[in-house]
Amino acid sequence: MSRNLLADSYISWLKNEVSEEVIDSKVSELTTPFLDRHNDYIQVYAEQQENNSYLLTDDGYITSELRSSGVDGKGSRREELFSEILSGHGVVLEGSELQTKATSDDLGQRLHSLIQAMLSVDDMFVLSQPSIHGLFMDDVANFLEEKNVRYIARAKFSGKSGLDHLADFVIPKSKGAPERIVQVINTPRRDRVQNMLFSVSDTREARANIQFFALINDRKSKITPEIAQAFENYSVKARAWSKREELVDELAA
Rank of each mutant, 00 (worst) to 15 (best):
L93H: 02
V170Q: 15
G75R: 14
E65A: 13
R110P: 00
V71K: 10
Q229D: 14
E246T: 12
N217T: 02
K156D: 14
S25P: 01
N16G: 08
P225E: 03
A117H: 01
I85Q: 04
S128R: 02
L127R: 05
L127G: 04
S120H: 14
F82E: 12
K220H: 06
V27M: 13
D106Q: 00
E145D: 11
T57Q: 11
Y10G: 06
Q99M: 07
I185P: 03
F82W: 11
V200E: 05
D105E: 01
A177V: 02
A141S: 10
R180E: 07
Q129W: 15
V91D: 09
R192C: 03
L5C: 06
S201A: 13
T32H: 05
A177G: 04
S69N: 14
F213E: 04
D218G: 06
K175E: 14
V193K: 01
I185S: 02
L114W: 02
A238Q: 04
I42A: 10
V91E: 08
Y10R: 12
V22T: 14
V184D: 02
N16S: 15
K101S: 12
S28P: 09
Y151F: 15
T57V: 15
S128F: 02
R190F: 10
I227L: 03
L5P: 00
H89G: 10
E20K: 06
E84I: 05
L247W: 11
S221K: 08
R207T: 15
N16W: 01
T63S: 12
E246G: 11
E250I: 07
H165A: 10
G90C: 06
R207F: 05
R150A: 07
N209A: 11
Q116F: 10
Q183K: 15
T203V: 07
A141M: 07
P33S: 11
A177Y: 02
